[in-house]
Amino acid sequence: MVKISPSQHKPRCPVPRGNLTRPSGCGHGRPAGWPSPQCDDAAVRLAASGIPILLLHGRQDMTFPVALLEQTTALIPAARAVVLDDAGHMAHIDQPEQWITAVGEFLE
């Protein structure tokens, strides 16, 4: 495991998301002027796309709580939502068989 000392840690970019004029060297790994990969209306755009969507989530996820899944399914009603009860943020590691089954059933 590589440890990063506090002096090596880069602070978050102070420029708000979506701004097209981010300063260079802000730690995002892309040149200044490139758009943010984050999209504030992603759920709306995905819902309008018409593509099949699987929202596969671990109930014990502390990074993205399951409440976010409930909000997202409200925005994308056609999406299939699966919650793995005994899994956290790394659901594919915590419950690999259940994860594979959910993905397989979605792809059928």
Score class of each variant (00 low, 15 high):
His92Met: 15
Val15Asp: 03
Glu105Phe: 04
Ala32Lys: 08
Thr72Phe: 04
Gly50Asp: 09
Cys39Ser: 04
Ala32Gly: 11
Gln60Gly: 02
Gly58Tyr: 02
Ile76Asn: 00
Gln95Thr: 11
Gly33Leu: 09
Cys26His: 03
Glu97Thr: 12
Leu20Ser: 05
Ile100Trp: 05
Phe64Glu: 03
Arg17Phe: 07
Ser5Cys: 09
Gly25Asn: 06
Trp34Arg: 14
Val66Ile: 13
Asp41Ser: 08
Gly33Gln: 05
Val2Ser: 06
Glu70Arg: 14
His92Ile: 11
Ala87Gln: 02
Val15Cys: 06
His89Pro: 07
Leu69Ile: 03
Arg12Cys: 10
Thr101Ile: 11
Pro31Gly: 11
Gln95Asp: 08
Glu108Ala: 15
Pro23Thr: 02
Leu107Ala: 10
Ser49Gln: 09
Trp99Gln: 03
Cys39Asp: 04
Gly25Trp: 04
Leu46Glu: 00
Ala81Val: 11
His28Tyr: 09
Met62Arg: 15
Ala47Ile: 10
Arg30Ala: 13
Asp41Gln: 09
Gln60Ser: 10
Lys3Phe: 11
Ala81Tyr: 04
Gln95Tyr: 00
Trp34Met: 15
Ser36Asp: 15
Arg22His: 11
Ala79Thr: 06
Asn19His: 08
Ile51Leu: 14
Leu55Ala: 08
Ile93Gln: 09
His28Leu: 15
Gly88Ala: 11
Leu107Ser: 03
Pro65Val: 13
Asp61Glu: 07
Leu69Cys: 05
Gln60Pro: 06
Pro16Cys: 04
Arg17Tyr: 05
Pro31Ser: 13
Gln71Thr: 12
Arg30Asp: 02
Ser24Tyr: 02
Met90Arg: 04
Gly27Arg: 06
Gly58Ser: 06
Met62Thr: 14
Trp34Val: 15
Leu55Asn: 02
Asp41Val: 11
Pro37Lys: 02
Pro65Ala: 09
Trp99Val: 03
Ala42Ile: 15
His57Cys: 03
Ala79Ser: 13
Arg12Glu: 12
Arg22Gln: 06
Ala42Glu: 06
Ile53Cys: 08
Asp86Arg: 09
Cys39Trp: 00
Arg45Glu: 03
Asp94Leu: 08
Ser49Ile: 12
Leu55Thr: 05
Ile76Ser: 01
Leu75Tyr: 01
Gly33Lys: 06
Ile4Cys: 08
Glu97Asp: 13
Pro96Ser: 05
Pro23Val: 04
Pro16Gly: 03
Val15Phe: 01
Pro23Trp: 02
Leu46Asn: 00
Ile53Gly: 01
Met1Glu: 10
Ile4Val: 15
Arg45Gln: 11
Gln60Ala: 13
Ala32Ser: 12
Thr101Glu: 11
Leu55Met: 15
Val2Asn: 10
Pro6Cys: 05
Asp41Asn: 14
Met1Asn: 10
Val15Thr: 15
Ile76Trp: 04
Thr73His: 07
Ala102Val: 05
Arg59Lys: 14
Ile53Glu: 01
Thr21Ser: 09
Pro96Gln: 05
His92Pro: 05
His9Glu: 12
Ala81Asn: 05
